[in-house]
């Protein structure tokens, strides 16, 4: 729910943005988003964000890595290139564990890392909200909250009044993208 068109309000504290999320949610707005310099788990709850699905995906990645890692070793040392050394068994499961473990972690970590960027559709170097003057303080000391135009309740005048009731520093629309 990345807001590309709508109205944004600039606030000056984490507490204010939490209260604002509460108030707007109570008014019935659903297309809400915040932009903050630090993670605010309590606000995420109020925005009704679903649980991240990265965990299960990383688990599946780890499983795939384990199968792949063990499979490569079995294929190499048992199937295509069996090498008898001192009569030791070709399929030496304990000896295959270390590399299998590493492959598990490697694939799971790649899935977790890439998963963050894939689910968030990053990299996206330009975004309409970046056109707002002063928005860059969202990565330092300002807390922004916005209502998207796709919200059924969105109405340019009424939403502006609702935002004004939160006593923000200012209210700005997301500018039209430059052509």
């Amino acid at each position: 729910m990345s807001i590309r068109r709508g109205l944004l309000a600039e606030l000056d504290s984490a507490g204010a943005v939490a209260a604002a999320a509460d108030a707007l949610h109570a008014l019935g707005y659903r297309a809400l988003d915040t932009w903050t310099p630090l993670p605010l788990p309590e606000v995420e709850e109020r925005l009704g964000l679903r649980r991240s699905r990265l965990g299960p995906y990383a688990f599946l990645g780890g499983l795939a890595g384990a199968i792949l890692g063990y499979g490569i070793q079995w294929y190499a040392d048992v199937w295509v290139f069996p090498l008898r050394v001192g009569g030791r068994p070709l399929h030496a499961a304990p000896a295959f564990i270390p590399a299998t473990f590493e492959a598990t972690v490697l694939v799971a970590a790649f899935v977790a890392f890439l998963g963050v960027f894939v689910t968030l559709r990053l990299p996206e170097l330009w975004h309409p909200v970046f056109e707002i003057d002063g928005f860059e303080r969202a990565s330092a000391d300002r807390f922004w909250i916005g209502v998207g135009e796709d919200d059924p309740l969105f109405d340019r005048r009424r939403t502006r009044e609702d935002l004004a009731a939160l006593h923000p520093l200012r209210i700005v629309p997301v500018p039209e993208p430059p052509r």
Binding site: T34, W35, P39, P41, L49, S52, F117, W126
Partner: peptide
């Protein structure tokens, strides 16, 4: 990579 500090972004980021 276009990080904006959005609520959803922080959530996935923390989990990752």
């Amino acid at each position: 990579l276009g990080w904006r500090g959005g609520a959803r972004q922080w959530r996935e980021y923390r989990m990752g």
